[in-house]
Amino acid sequence: MDNLGLFLAILGAALAAGFSGIGSAKGVGLVGEAGAGLLSEDSSMFTKVLVLQILPGTQGLYGFLIAIIVFTKTGLLSGTPVAMTWQQGVAMLAACLPIAIVGYFSAIYQGRVSASGVSLIAKKPTELIKGMTMAALVEFYAVLALLISFLAVNNITLG
């Protein structure tokens, strides 16, 4: 029970990196499938498809970032973990949840929008910007969640 606080902080970091990563993998995978469909007909579209495929991958990066901050803050990266109460651990876990939840769902939905964007450029190759803008709007909410998680993790006083 001594390390319960630390365990909860690590759990939070794992959820942030894990769920956002899974969401991003799903989103990127979906766009990849749609992209392969388009490239099998027109390989000159590769660059455009790549731009759309990258977009749902950012959530995974956000989750990874929060996990690194949690590890730094708890001293796990330096190898000397700080002493934490279970209340501090719960606070750390709660701080990680916004990016874990929003990251997971927004990556999947962004993947759907980006895959639709692939269909859009398949039919109208000049409309990449419109497809990207629509997908980027979903990103906005992932950025908000990242911001909340970042501020919350940063403002928890340990030690």
């Binding site: 749609a34 392969a36 269909s119 398949a122």
Partner: peptide
């Protein structure tokens, strides 16, 4: 429905022709 992502993108590319 997302299992059709590859198929739909390919058909959309063909709709151009």
């Amino acid at each position: 429905d997302t299992d059709y992502a590859f198929c739909v993108a390919r058909l959309r590319a063909n709709e151009r022709y």
